[in-house]
Nucleic acid binder design. Structure first.
Length: 459
RNA sequence: UCCCCGGUAGCUCAGCUGGUAGAGCAGGUGACUGUUAAUCACCCUGUCGGCGGUUCGAAUCCGUCCCGGGGAGCCA
């Protein structure tokens, strides 16, 4: 029966007859036979195949195999007499499924820059590093669901096309298609828009998640999110995935606890279940990565208020490009200094000035701050942003007016406060930033299979 | 979008103050070998990012556009 390399290497059975399909990583010839390194993507490690010259197609085909060729190997698993691997597959037949002309196949048996691999994003998952990223990403994705499902959260598929802008979250991509009704002539008030009004791709599922939280209690969304910002950085994408829990009867402290528990759960999961892939990142991408992740799991996250952050920055004696004073938005240099130099661990900053935060965040009794939180992580910066939501309709209305937001456009959102309102909280976790943090990959474009950035969406 | 740096062989890069191009790896051929970034010998490879300009002459200088990297803004 067809087995994956990961299964074979995890529990090798000497003498077992196997059929393995995979891609040739490299071929080395010895006297009278050849070694094939066979990888199938199920794990980082390859299976060594012994191809004797007695194979019917040895001279015509096996000797011509090169990096990237796909083959189906049938043979017997045996102990390996040489060092470097404990078992190997002695081939009885090798069927070549697809050639990969070495003159033109872009992937070589050598290191490639990530910038180059990005230009061939249809081939890059065949490399060790990008394959490992894909496996870790998949495990993290599954972990997000298991974390919430184990705790009784209901997953809500919030809409991708939306007519509500989540203020403060960035520019929306426009979804523009002529109305099917236009031209029919009957509907006099036809705007010509497919949805009867301007629509866009969601910049956050938060507002709709709030709807379900105020019906089902604890919910989460995990889906694609779009920002039409002209951002050219190593930590921004035009299309990315975001995890957004929303919890009824939950204040900011509860919000913080869930966020910290989620991050630790996911790190612990990957440390135990993706050890080989993490070891690769630790060796070649970010030295000390595993120790850093282990430390994060073991330590309490630091927690300070914005006001304390401002004090700490001012007392640090450090000179910043942007001077620190109460009321400013913390700049990257400030966030990095706080989490990387002062606290040296993940840092939760709460209670930001109301003036620099969106209208839906809950106004505190001081009237100056809102119940907001950002989780900052060394190397990445902001990985989570969240808040307790404003549940008092008259306060919410006032804040909307201050922010210049038309209450009529958010009438449904205000209804949630008019009828059976409850305190509730939630946050957004940038999934790619999580994958970046876990893998140590420097550029966010390497942790999503098909990155979308301004001017770049090749397939 | 702004600031700085870069774009030379399939890949990674060298090429000083202008005289029209090179190394390693990859690839090809052969030898050798229970090999594992295999080794050794020989061979091949270029619109020097695009366009325009200066000059007798541009990979090299100037302008502009495109793309990439680092930083910043926006944020997740």
């Amino acid at each position: 029966m067809n087995k994956r390399v990961a299964e074979v290497l995890a529990a090798p059975q000497i003498g077992e007859k196997l059929e393995i399909g995979g891609w040739v990583r490299t071929r080395r010839d010895a006297g009278g036979f050849s070694f094939l390194e066979l990888g199938d993507g199920s794990c980082l490690a390859n299976l060594q195949v012994i191809a004797e010259q007695t194979l019917a197609n040895y001279r015509d085909e096996v000797k011509k195999l090169s990096t990237g060729c796909s083959v189906l190997v049938r043979g017997i698993l045996q102990e390996s007499p040489a060092r470097g691997q404990s078992v190997e597959l002695r081939a009885e037949t090798i069927e070549v499924l697809g050639w990969a002309d070495p003159e033109s196949y872009p992937l070589q048996k050598k290191h490639h820059s990530f910038e180059f691999l990005r230009e061939i994003c249809h081939l890059r998952p065949r490399t060790n590093a990008l394959g490992a990223v894909a496996r870790v990403r998949s495990r993290l994705s599954y972990g997000v669901h298991s974390f919430f499902q184990e705790r009784g959260f209901i997953q809500v598929h919030t809409p991708i096309i939306t007519t509500s802008d989540c203020e403060g979250a960035g520019e929306m991509f426009q979804v523009s298609t002529p109305s099917p009704a236009s031209g029919a002539g009957e509907s006099g008030g036809d705007s010509g828009e497919f949805f009867g009004r301007p629509a866009g791709l969601t910049v956050s599922g938060q507002l709709q998640a709030e709807v379900y939280a105020q019906a089902l209690g604890n919910v989460y969304t995990f889906g694609p999110t779009f920002r039409a910002e002209n951002s050219n950085t190593s930590r921004h994408l035009a299309e990315f995935w975001m995890v957004e829990p929303e919890m009824a009867f939950c204040d900011l402290a509860g919000n913080r606890q869930v966020a910290e528990a989620l991050l630790k759960y996911l790190l612990r999961l990957v440390l135990t279940e993706c050890a080989a892939d993490l070891a690769l990142f630790d060796r070649f991408i970010a030295k000390g990565l595993v120790a850093k992740l282990e430390a994060v799991v073991e330590q309490e996250f630091a927690h300070i208020t914005y006001t304390e952050a401002v004090q700490q920055l001012r007392q640090s004696g450090q000179s910043f490009v942007y001077p620190v004073q109460w009321g400013i938005d913390l700049q990257s240099e400030h966030e990095r200094y706080l989490t990387e130099t002062i606290h040296r661990r993940p840092l939760i900053v709460t209670d930001y000035p109301a003036a620099i935060k969106p209208f839906y965040m809950r106004l505190s009794d001081d009237g100056l701050t809102v119940a907001a939180m950002d989780i900052l992580v060394p190397g990445i910066g902001e990985i989570i942003g969240g808040s307790q939501r404003e549940e008092r309709s008259e306060v919410l209305l006032a804040r909307m007016e201050q922010a210049g937001v038309d209450p009529l456009a958010y009438d449904w959102y205000l209804d949630l406060r008019r009828y059976g309102t409850v305190p509730h909280s939630g946050f957004g976790l940038g999934f790619e930033r999580l994958v970046q943090f876990v893998t140590g990959m420097a550029n966010i474009r390497e942790v999503i299979p098909f990155p979308r950035t301004p001017g770049f969406a090749p397939c």
